[in-house]
Amino acid sequence: MSEGMIIFGAWIAAALTLFLFSFLYKDNPFFKIAEHLFIGAGMGWYFQTIFYKIMIPKIWEPLHSGDPFKIFMVVIPALLGLSLITQFIPKISWISRYGFTFMMGYSAGMAIPVGLATDFMNQILGTIEPFANFFALSGWQMFNALAIAIGTICVLFYFFFSVEHKGAGKKVSNLGIYFLMIYFGASFGNTVMARFSLLYGRFDTLVNYSSAKYFYATSWILVGLTLYFVAEKLITSAKRETAE
């Protein structure tokens, strides 16, 4: 890539980043530009991915392979997929129900055995497994095993909707909430740290683009945005005063 294109790319990247950050102040035309560009680029990317990674290799090529088995295996799913497009034609939109029904049934069929296996049976096994060698465990491991088993039961009871949570049930349910909150707190801290690292990454890029090598891209765009907001504020205030 030529040096000029790299500098141009840096200006675009810095501008789009700052335009999106400008939403922290308030909605503005620069944010709208970045927002719509983002949607367009996202959809363009998604379309070409679907076209080149799915439609060409999974539908077009098997249909033109000349192998009757391959053609047969593609025709039915392709027709079911095409049936979804009939949504755009109200008179025959009922055809789309075949595609949707198939998808719903297929998804449920896939999800139910996997859900039963992983969320139910494996979960019970994972919870009780440490107790098989309970007396060979260290004190801390014993506490851990008990905390997991008790925590699991209490949290599940919190999500048990068939009885009113009162009396002893209320205490079990409250204990479940404590377990949940401890987990959510840890999860929150963990995610926030990850987000900060993303933010530092962005700031690092902006600082990098504010160097002489990139003709002070970040600084100039930042100055431009600030001037716009100041001017916009002054004009709005002036208009308000005139109106009053």
Binding site: I128, A132, F135, A149, T152, L156, F159
Partner: peptide, 28 residues
């Protein structure tokens, strides 16, 4: 459907409690 989920949770809670106790007794 919600009741069946509750049934599953009940089975889960009872299984964890009973199997854990059984395994502790079994280990002893």
């Amino acid at each position: 459907a919600l009741k069946v989920q509750d049934f599953g949770k009940l089975v889960f809670m009872i299984s964890v409690a009973v199997f854990s106790l059984l395994l502790i007794i079994g280990a002893k």
